[in-house]
């Protein structure tokens, strides 16, 4: 994982100090059945990355503290832990409840250096740092790279970007938004740098689509 040599952040207490005889201030609940729920989330994410551009059903965590979306929360709780640090974009980092929720449920360090993160949670894709800010792997260890999880408002099959590559029979089209303004350039950077690159998960309400580094953007026409 990319954070191996990164100095751990000073971690503020995730839970407000408990007053004897009371329950600590509310951190919303995580999965009702952690083992089975995280397996379902993982399978949705696995299908999404194995079939890029083809949205899969994903049950989110309705109680996630905003602006963390239910889908971002479910993916983080299913996949992050002390070995897989999380990075939060400016919108999420501005809400202390979000980091407290993620620390409590995953035990994952929340890092400020995006290149140290296994998963970057992005609630505001328009404000996503440039790809070179994240870990894109090394030629000998391309897997030591960040997976970007972007919250989008909608995912629509059949319109939008035309995609090709492993996992796609022929071509598929995927409409998603909002996305970083330079998203097409980011996908081209991935294609040019393969096997280095960033893997993207786009999470809309109830859905997740994958755009791994192996997916190519096909020019229209």
């Amino acid at each position: 994982m990319p954070a191996m040599n990164a100095a751990p952040e000073a971690i503020p207490p995730a839970i407000p100090p408990a007053v004897p005889g009371t329950i600590p201030a509310a951190i919303p609940l995580g999965f009702a059945e952690p083992s089975l729920d995280s397996q379902r989330v993982f399978r949705a994410v696995l299908e999404a990355l194995a079939r890029p551009g083809q949205p899969q059903r994903l049950a989110g965590l309705a109680d996630a503290p905003r602006p963390l979306t239910p889908e971002l929360a479910a993916i983080a709780l299913a996949l992050a832990d002390h070995e897989a640090p999380l990075w939060l974009d400016a919108r999420l980092a501005a809400a202390p409840d979000v980091a407290a929720f993620l620390r409590f449920h995953t035990g994952a360090p929340v890092v400020t250096d995006p290149a140290a993160a296994a998963f970057a949670l992005v609630a505001d894709p328009a404000d996503c740092p440039p790809p070179e800010a994240f870990a894109e792997g090394t030629p000998e260890d391309p897997d030591r790279s960040t997976t970007l999880v972007l919250a989008v408002g909608h995912l629509t099959e059949g319109i939008g970007m035309t995609l090709a590559g492993p996992g796609i029979p022929g071509r598929v089209r995927l409409g998603a938004g909002p996305l970083p303004a330079d998203f097409a350039a980011r996908l081209r950077r991935n294609a040019a740098g393969f096997p280095l690159g960033l893997d993207h998960l786009l999470a809309a309400p109830g859905l997740v689509a994958g755009l791994p580094r192996s997916t190519r953007l096909v020019a229209e026409g």
Binding site: A78, L79, P166, G167
Partner: peptide, 23 residues
């Protein structure tokens, strides 16, 4: 569960980089 998460993360990277062996 922690072992499964570690294996699942490796599987996701393996799928993203077809044919590459993820430790």
């Amino acid at each position: 569960e922690q072992t499964k998460r570690m294996i699942r993360r490796a599987i996701l990277k393996a799928v993203a980089i077809p044919g590459y062996q993820v430790p």
